[in-house]
Simulated assay, not measured.
Amino acid sequence: MSQAKSTSAPALSPQFCFNERLLRDFLLLSRSTIDDSITQNLNALVTPARDGFDPSSTSARQIDSKTGSTVNPTACQSFTDNVLFPSWQMRSDVLNYCAGVATSPDPEDPDLILRETESARDRERVVNERLDPYSGRFFPREARTESLATVVRNQRSVEEIIRARTWSMVTERCGGSTSNWEEALNNWRERKQQ
Results as ranks from 00 to 15, higher is better:
Thr103Trp: 15
Arg137His: 06
Ser147Asn: 12
Cys174Glu: 10
Ser177Ile: 09
Val126Arg: 11
Asn43Gln: 06
Gln194Thr: 08
Asn19Lys: 12
Thr58Lys: 15
Arg50Met: 09
Leu12His: 07
Asn96Gln: 11
Arg165Val: 06
Arg156Tyr: 06
Gly100Trp: 05
Val170Leu: 04
Glu159Ala: 08
Ala11Cys: 13
Glu146Tyr: 09
Arg130Asp: 10
Cys174His: 14
Ser13Phe: 10
Leu185Glu: 11
Val101His: 05
Ala149Gly: 12
Gln89Asp: 14
Ser30Ala: 10
Gln77Met: 12
Ser59Phe: 15
Arg153Ser: 10
Asp51Pro: 01
Tyr134Ser: 09
Thr171Ile: 07
Glu108Arg: 07
Ser78Gly: 03
Ser6Gln: 14
Thr33Gly: 01
Arg165Met: 07
Glu124Pro: 01
Ser87Asp: 06
Asn43Leu: 15
Thr166His: 04
Glu116Thr: 10
Ile161Thr: 14
Asp122Val: 03
Asn180Pro: 03
Ser37Gln: 12
Asn41Gly: 01
Ser168Asn: 13
Asn154Ser: 12
Leu27Gly: 02
Leu95Pro: 02
Val71Arg: 11
Arg123Leu: 06
Thr145Ile: 04
Gly52Gln: 08
Ser8Cys: 07
Arg50Cys: 05
Val101Phe: 12
Asp54Arg: 08
Ile34Phe: 02
Thr145Glu: 11
Asn72Cys: 03
Asn128Gln: 04
Phe85Leu: 07
Ser119Met: 09
Phe79Ser: 12
Ser69Asn: 08
Arg31Gln: 08
Leu114Arg: 05
Leu23Glu: 14
Ala149Val: 03
Leu23Ala: 14
Ile162His: 01
Arg123Asn: 03
Asp132Trp: 04
Glu172Pro: 01
Ser168His: 12
Asp36Gly: 02
Leu12Tyr: 10
Met1Trp: 05
Ala4Ile: 01
Glu182Asp: 10
Ser168Lys: 12
Asp25Arg: 11
Arg115His: 03
Ser119Pro: 01
Thr178His: 15
Glu160Asp: 14
Leu29Lys: 08
Val94Asn: 11
Leu112His: 06
Gly136Ser: 06
Pro133Asp: 09
Ser87Cys: 04
Gln193Tyr: 12
Asp51Ile: 04
Gln40Trp: 13
Ser168Met: 11
Ser30Leu: 04
Pro10Cys: 11
Asp109Gln: 10
Pro73Met: 12
Phe16Trp: 05
Arg191Gln: 14
Thr103Pro: 01
Pro105Val: 12
Ser13Glu: 15
Val152Thr: 08
Trp88Pro: 01
Ala184Gly: 08
Thr166Glu: 13
Ser56Met: 09
Gly100Asp: 06
Pro48Ala: 09
Gln89Val: 00
Gly100Lys: 03
Cys76Lys: 08
Ile38Arg: 05
Asn186Asp: 15
Ala60Arg: 03
Ser177Val: 05
Leu84Met: 06
Ala49Pro: 02
Ala9Cys: 09
Val152Ser: 07
Glu190Tyr: 00
Ala4Leu: 13
Thr117Pro: 02
Lys66Gly: 09
Ser69His: 11
Ser135Tyr: 00
Met169Cys: 03
Leu148Gly: 02
Arg191Ser: 07
Gly68His: 05
Thr145Lys: 01
Val151Ser: 05
Phe18Asn: 08
Glu182Ser: 02
Pro110Ile: 13
Glu159Thr: 10
Val152Asp: 14
Ser32Arg: 13
